[in-house]
């Protein structure tokens, strides 16, 4: 293994300060939310349904932590320090979205959040259990971290688009969305910096990352979601001319990452309904 393969410690030039991020973590948002307006005016069904999807995605961090921690990623203390705070912040984002849903009482009228799952061949990797994940990650070695941070980055770009769409459907949600995006901004910065550095350093990292991105159901966590809800998500966020434009933008961002040229267009095609 080359020394590159062991370089998972951030060099001095790294701009993202994990300690500072941990120190200034943002929790509990309910006090900043104007819940009364949702109690009075409710939410329209599409906005409520998208809000429910996003809440559940933000909530699934422990499942994501599990998938990361059974691999070599758990050995990188800087990354785990980031993930500790990231999980905390996402917990409170989910709580904020939950508070809005609850206040609007819109959830009762939504279609049931259950049903069969999609069984796409290309997503087979994403359906693996912890043991198979751990075994294949063992072969990948420390470079699996590159795949994880890059997938985290692409996921942030996709959910960002979804939040923007949410504010577009329901004006009343714009300040909630603003709060969420502000918190997520630092997550993007960390993932982006780590992804660019790690991909730039190692061909093996690029190879493993391509495989990871192409085998993932987007956004991350979707693999556990009912097929109906996933179709809804793709239709509402990436349907229509504006949505296709969003998807194209995300595809371009992914393609611009070192070694990911061919990956962007495939993910773009999968996002569009």
């Amino acid at each position: 293994m080359t020394t590159n393969d062991e370089t998972t410690i951030a060099p001095a030039a790294t701009a993202f300060d994990v300690s500072e991020f941990a120190r200034t973590a943002k929790g509990f948002h309910r006090d900043e939310l104007d819940l009364e307006q949702f109690e009075q005016h409710g939410l329209e069904p599409d906005a409520a349904r998208l809000l429910r999807v996003l809440r559940d995605l933000e909530r699934s961090t422990m499942a994501r932590m599990r998938n990361l921690l059974v691999t070599a990623t758990h050995k990188d203390a800087r990354v785990t320090a980031f993930l500790t705070t990231w999980a905390y912040e996402k917990f409170w984002l989910a709580d904020a979205l939950d508070a809005v849903l609850e206040a609007s009482r819109a959830e009762e009228d939504l279609p049931a959040d259950e049903g069969h799952h999609r069984l796409t061949v290309s997503e087979r990797r994403d359906r693996r259990g912890t043991i198979r994940r751990a075994i294949s990650a063992n072969f990948a070695g420390p470079q699996i971290v590159a795949a994880h941070v890059t997938a985290g980055l692409a996921d942030e770009w996709i959910t960002h688009a979804a939040y923007r769409r949410l504010a577009g459907i329901a004006e009343s949600l714009s300040s909630v969305v603003e709060t969420v995006l502000e918190v997520k901004d630092r997550h993007i910065r960390f993932f982006q910096e780590e992804a660019e550095r790690r991909l730039g350093e190692s061909p093996k990292a690029r190879r493993i990352t391509r495989k990871e991105l192409l085998g993932t159901a987007w956004p991350i966590g979707s693999v556990e979601r009912p097929a109906e809800e996933r179709s809804f998500f793709e239709r509402i966020v990436f349907g229509g001319a504006e949505g296709r434009e969003e998807a194209r933008g995300i595809g371009a961002l992914i393609s611009a990452l070192p070694g990911m040229t061919a990956v962007g267009s495939t993910i773009e095609a999968r996002l569009v309904p």
Binding site: A63, M65, R66, L69, V70, H74, T80, L83, T84, T130
Partner: peptide, 12 residues
């Protein structure tokens, strides 16, 4: 600091 390693156990 290694709590995250125990967390991994719990999560399996």
């Amino acid at each position: 600091y290694h709590t995250v390693c125990y967390l991994r156990d719990m999560l399996t």
